[in-house]
Amino acid sequence: MKNGLLIFLAGAFFGAGLALSGMTDPVKVTAFLDIFGFWDPTLAFVMGGALLVFGGGYFLLRGTLQLPANPGEKISSNLLLGAVLFGIGWGLGGFCPGPAIANLGALRIEALIFVPAMAVGMILVQRIYRIDG
């Protein structure tokens, strides 16, 4: 039960961070990807802050807390194809999974369409490619 509360808090930090950073706004995310247009670099600051805290914390604590090792796997064709497809969908909608789910609570129609569609895509690929774990 104690763990449940901590995990809820972890999710709440994540969601609050997405909202505070403006990353729940698809237009702002699209503007980061629009490097030849009216470019908005905010997403780079978000990534910087997230990497600083997560990466810094991970390397400081991984010994004492026995955190999982670097998950790195070899670069497969599935990884590359998946990343290309994800990038295309991200550019089209301005949503990646976190911000889309974060918008569910606000009952935004865009998120209410995007998230079930994303679930369909995930179920499809998990069946076709038999993705385990």
Partner: peptide, 30 residues
């Protein structure tokens, strides 16, 4: 949004991660 959702779902699970899984966690762990 419907089309983007399907592609994002398919791509992130095939590629093993999204902006958080690869971009923050994976990169943060090196």
């Amino acid at each position: 949004y419907a089309l983007a959702g399907i592609i994002v779902g398919f791509g992130t699970r095939l590629g093993g991660g999204c902006t958080s899984g690869h971009g923050v966690c994976g990169m943060g762990m090196g």
